Simulated assay, not measured.
Amino acid sequence: MYLADEAWPDLESYFETESLALVPLGSTEQHGPHLPEGTDHLIAEALAREAADRTGYLCTPTINVGVSSHHRQFHGTMWANAPAFRDYVESITRNLTYHGIDRVIYVNAHGGNVQHLREVGRRLRDSGDAYAIEWMWDESIPDLVDDLFEQNGPHGGPKETAMIQHIAGELVHDDRLADARDGGLSAFDEFTGRKHGARTFYDAIDNSANGVFGDQTDATAEKGQQLFEAASDQLVRLSEWLADQPFESLVAKRHV
């Protein structure tokens, strides 16, 4: 069920019988010369809607702009300052609690949002109003990602390229995949951007001239379909698990 498509009287029965909502979040930021700036929020919304369609749980409209200032040097990147983002997401979530939702899955597709969504989840749990958890699609299927790609890359790499080839292939510049690889950082390891154990970079451009990492030529729509189906399965299972938990088992424990 997609909240924005429903008339308010038709949502009454959902709020009377269910207490879970899926909230997709992403970003609007550069993803190299080959992918749209909406890559992250397109992936998040597609996965959340798929899980909602399969389970009947509620999917809210997508939060399209995230914490992305580390991509600001590239044309068109939009970002929210971290405190404003946290407050906005918390406010939106409290909208849902007003209607009776007490558990939320943040269906996230942008790494820059992770720590801030975790902080919002802690606020809501500590107040006893809701149990909200962050879910990152690629972290739910790490073995498959590793199996499909020689160098998957943390941003704008083949895993995101393959997902957009599957979800919205018309937005991918397939003729630029080699340029994306050759103009970015295709080979890296845990020591890249670090000196004597310290992380020395702040922005994507500090490590990659065109803002992306990995070998994009390794991506195909067929691999994207595999990723999408596997991640959707994980999100469905998570939704069903969370809906089954007694709320008292989710809230913060009392001091002992």
Rank of each mutant, 00 (worst) to 15 (best):
G121V: 01
L177W: 02
W137Y: 13
R194F: 04
F85V: 08
Q226M: 04
Y2D: 15
N152M: 07
R237F: 05
L47V: 10
W8N: 15
E190V: 07
Q226Y: 04
I141L: 02
E190N: 11
V67C: 13
Q245K: 03
L124F: 05
A230L: 02
G193D: 10
N95K: 01
L238S: 09
P61M: 06
D233K: 08
F247D: 15
D53T: 13
L96R: 05
L177G: 10
I63W: 08
G66I: 01
A219P: 07
L238E: 13
N207K: 05
G197Y: 00
V89R: 00
R199S: 07
P158Q: 01
E50L: 07
T39D: 08
M136L: 14
S69E: 15
D146V: 07
H173N: 14
K195G: 05
E139T: 13
L148V: 05
E18T: 07
E37K: 11
A252W: 07
K195P: 00
K253R: 13
N113R: 00
S208W: 02
R181T: 15
R199E: 13
M163Q: 06
F247R: 08
A252G: 10
I167N: 12
S19D: 14
E134H: 06
T93F: 00
A46N: 11
R254N: 13
Q226C: 03
A132Q: 06
R125A: 04
K159Q: 15
A51H: 10
H71V: 05
W8E: 15
G157D: 03
A168H: 03
D175G: 03
P61V: 04
C59F: 12
L35H: 09
D10Q: 14
A52C: 04
A178M: 01
D218N: 02
D179I: 00
L144N: 13
D40F: 09
E240N: 10
E190D: 14
H155Y: 05
V212H: 11
A4V: 13
E90I: 00
A82I: 08
T97P: 11
A230N: 07
L35G: 12
G224C: 06
G128C: 07
R181Y: 13
D175M: 00
A162W: 02
E16L: 01
L117P: 13
L185W: 06
H31Q: 07
R94Q: 10
V236N: 12
G112C: 09
I43H: 07
D138H: 12
Y57M: 10
Y2Q: 15
H155E: 08
G111M: 01
I141C: 05
G224T: 08
E229D: 14
V107G: 03
R199F: 02
E229S: 08
D10V: 06
R176V: 05
N207E: 15
S249L: 14
G224E: 05
D218H: 01
Q234G: 14
I167K: 04
S127I: 01
